[in-house]
Computed example of a mutant assay.
Amino acid sequence: MSIALRHARVRYGPLEALHGVTLVAPGPGLTVLLGRNGSGRTTALRALAGTVALSAGAVVWDGTDVTGLSAFERARRGLRLVPERRAVFGSLTVAENLELAGADLAPALDAYPQLAPLLPRPAGTLSGGEQRMVALSRALLARARVLLVDEPAQGMSPTVAARTYELLGALDACVVVAEQRLPPGLRERTGRTTFVHELSRGAVVFSGEAAERTPGRPHRRR
């Protein structure tokens, strides 16, 4: 199980956001696309999902070139994208948001018990961190084969953020997240290996295991 970009280029008008990026996210397991704003990490995530088109290169899923498949078709095959913004239906209640992904809400409430008292509230009235919990719970209920999440712990307390990464890391899926910084604990995480691809100005500057990436040292290409 894996999803990959091969020599991927993405253009927004005259500007090229990805410059021939190659990266692989193996699964089941967790891969982090790391980088500052403007590095290309979110564009890489969207390219994998099919919500932005490649101007060159390919998206390869389990050895099959899916570059020509629409985002809808990729979703039908088990890929889920949780964007940074507009990840919930604000006019629907929390319960209604979750019911769109599955009739049984128990797994979502087991993952985030904090959502139980919020079930009757419109999702648009929740805090940013609470909305992230709803969006991620929907993704968990969908049982995706590939789960792509842009800044999963945004707005969460450190405790809930740690719980979120514990949940993501335990999924039987290929999980790819985009973050500005490597989340605490992933470098020393036991069990499954966490992989990191660090991007800068639309190019990969580091690829390897999270434990290999030492803060403060020059990044290296592979």
Rank of each mutant, 00 (worst) to 15 (best):
A108F: 10
V59F: 07
V66G: 11
A75R: 15
P122M: 15
R46F: 03
E84N: 15
L109W: 15
E99L: 09
W61V: 05
G63Y: 09
T125E: 14
T64G: 10
V52I: 12
A111L: 05
R77W: 07
S127L: 04
E96S: 11
E151W: 05
P83L: 14
R145H: 11
E84V: 15
E151T: 07
R76M: 09
T51I: 13
T125A: 13
G78S: 05
T67G: 03
V66T: 14
A95R: 12
G90I: 14
V146C: 00
L54P: 12
D62T: 01
L118G: 03
S137K: 04
A144P: 05
V59A: 10
V59S: 03
R46Y: 09
Q154E: 13
E99D: 00
P107S: 00
L98D: 01
V146A: 01
G50C: 08
A49K: 12
A49P: 14
G102W: 06
P107H: 02
L79C: 04
E73C: 03
A87Y: 03
D150N: 04
A139W: 06
R132G: 09
T93L: 04
A106R: 08
G50R: 05
P117L: 01
L48F: 01
D65C: 08
V146G: 04
L79P: 05
N97Q: 04
P152R: 11
A95M: 15
P83F: 13
A106Q: 10
G68F: 10
G128F: 04
F89E: 04
R46T: 03
G129V: 07
N97M: 08
E99Y: 03
R85K: 10
L81R: 06
A142V: 06
G155I: 07
D150K: 05
E96H: 14
Q114S: 14
V134W: 10
P152C: 14
L126A: 06
L147D: 06
A106V: 04
T125C: 10
R76H: 14
L140Q: 05
V88R: 02
L141Q: 01
P122E: 11
L92D: 01
Q131V: 15
A153D: 10
V60K: 03
Q154S: 11
R74T: 09
G68Q: 15
L109I: 12
G128Q: 15
L98C: 07
F72T: 02
L141G: 00
L147M: 12
V94E: 06
A101V: 00
S55W: 14
P83K: 11
T51N: 05
R77C: 02
